[in-house]
Design a protein around this nucleic acid. Sequence first.
DNA 1: TCAACTCTGTGAACTTCTTCACAATCGGGT
DNA 2: ACCCGATTGTGAAGAAGTTCACAGAGTTGA
Lengths: 220, 220
Amino acid sequence: MNASNGKVPMPTLERLANYLRYLLDLEQERVETISSAEVEQQTGINAAQFRKDLSYFGEFGKPGVGYNVAELQSRIAHILKLDQEQRVLLVGAGNLGSALVGYPGLKEHRFNLVAVFDNNYSKIGRKLWDLEILDLGRLKEVNAVLRARMGILAVPRVAAQSVAEGLVDAGVDSILNFAPLILRVPPHVVVRNVSFVQELAVLSYHLSSEPPQHALDAKG
Amino acid sequence: MNASNGKVPMPTLERLANYLRYLLDLEQERVETISSAEVEQQTGINAAQFRKDLSYFGEFGKPGVGYNVAELQSRIAHILKLDQEQRVLLVGAGNLGSALVGYPGLKEHRFNLVAVFDNNYSKIGRKLWDLEILDLGRLKEVNAVLRARMGILAVPRVAAQSVAEGLVDAGVDSILNFAPLILRVPPHVVVRNVSFVQELAVLSYHLSSEPPQHALDAKG
DNA sequence: TCAACTCTGTGAACTTCTTCACAATCGGGT
DNA sequence: ACCCGATTGTGAAGAAGTTCACAGAGTTGA
Ligand SMILES: NC(=O)c1ccc[n+]([C@@H]2O[C@H](COP(=O)([O-])OP(=O)(O)OC[C@H]3O[C@@H](n4cnc5c(N)ncnc54)[C@H](O)[C@@H]3O)[C@@H](O)[C@H]2O)c1
Ligand SMILES: NC(=O)c1ccc[n+]([C@@H]2O[C@H](COP(=O)([O-])OP(=O)(O)OC[C@H]3O[C@@H](n4cnc5c(N)ncnc54)[C@H](O)[C@@H]3O)[C@@H](O)[C@H]2O)c1
């Protein structure tokens, strides 16, 4: 009796996209049915965790059988709204922005990068792959037409806060931020940060405790 | 009493790099001292959380005063081993790899990208910024000299698992993985995944509950 | 010197997330 | 039709993380 009404834990949401990726692989391998135990065996995700994560959204499996791969895949895609086009604005046509525009993984998940903005006049008007780089000043005007609600922030750190405010003003209420700073946004706006340096720092920390080389192994 | 010996929660580690970033900003603004209450006010990070996170590593502040910005900054950098060079290997000289090599933020935190590998013969031998792209086949041989323990995986999904194994075989025990899949690695190896699509999916999910208040603010 | 005040460091309470463990259910075999 | 082995969905236990709240350390000023 759970089914999506209650509050879903954030870690569950974060795992959902991973499940989806894995299910798409299984589908391609023509696997029709999978049990949570097999998921655990193949991916290391705890079987009970997998089942409970799904349980927040309803009942997906059959006792004694498992889950239908194709059905589960499409239902997770639906939960995450990855079964419908999501229009996305990108600000910052630099190294990272360029990699993102050229990344086919976005379209595969129905994320449609509909416009790219920059404030550098030597870039405005040029094309980044197949998208023309637009003047940041036109953000609100352009999005009045496009009505994208998601924005990707790939500008230098010092510009990020003000650009974020511009995105919000243009009607964006979900921001993926690559700049290494904590954005302050109104409460209705959701921000997710991607920080390569943070991830590397966590790895770096762990190096300390690890033995310097792979001469050792075996663990209780 | 605490000081680094006990187990540190993973979320604490993840926040540490953020604190560092923030402290570097304060340093640049010539702020000498900061209290946890001011941190909360300026960044939204809960003051008690900030204090407790630090408490896992020792005592950093003075009651009645706060924290010395420069000292705290350097002590956090030390905890994360960001006060010493960390050599890093990159595999995959594509769009993302290229952005990473050109990203100055890595060097700023003492991450030194010492070699780039690819398996595409039209790329091998060319330069990516100032680094020559090396044949993936030479990974082990080259790292026998360089002795990097960190690796960044920026290859297509289908290649990621085997390249990860190659990295581990070459002595790498920390991997930052950009490919959208769950890597299986030996227990002594630490993996951190960066998944743009996962982050976007979480944002996409949240769009549901938000009111589509595009024209909420009554427009100009 | 002392009182008034500020702010840290941290046990303890609280909240959130993960894992366990088992009744309920399914499909297949006989 | 009925049993049997497999597997789900989920309360409840347990683990982990966050926040509270306060004793006590440091500072200031008289
Ligand atoms: N390149 C990476 O691998 C990488 C890794 C981690 C984080 N980041 C972060 O991502 C962001 C972008 O990185 P990058 O390497 O693409 O930088 P970049 O310098 O290559 O590109 C930044 C782009 O933003 C544009 N820009 C600057 N100010 C702007 C403004 N106010 N409005 C609109 N556009 C503006 C610039 O013209 C440029 O095109 C930075 O915050 C960086 O810290 C990058
Ligand atoms: N570009 C992005 O914005 C982006 C975003 C999210 C995730 N990713 C992921 O990052 C990875 C790299 O993305 P990209 O856009 O740079 O791809 P890309 O195709 O531009 O580059 C991949 C590089 O890897 C090399 N390569 C392929 N197989 C290899 C192998 N076995 N050994 C060594 N090198 C090999 C290719 O020659 C190429 O140079 C992919 O897994 C992708 O899904 C990329």
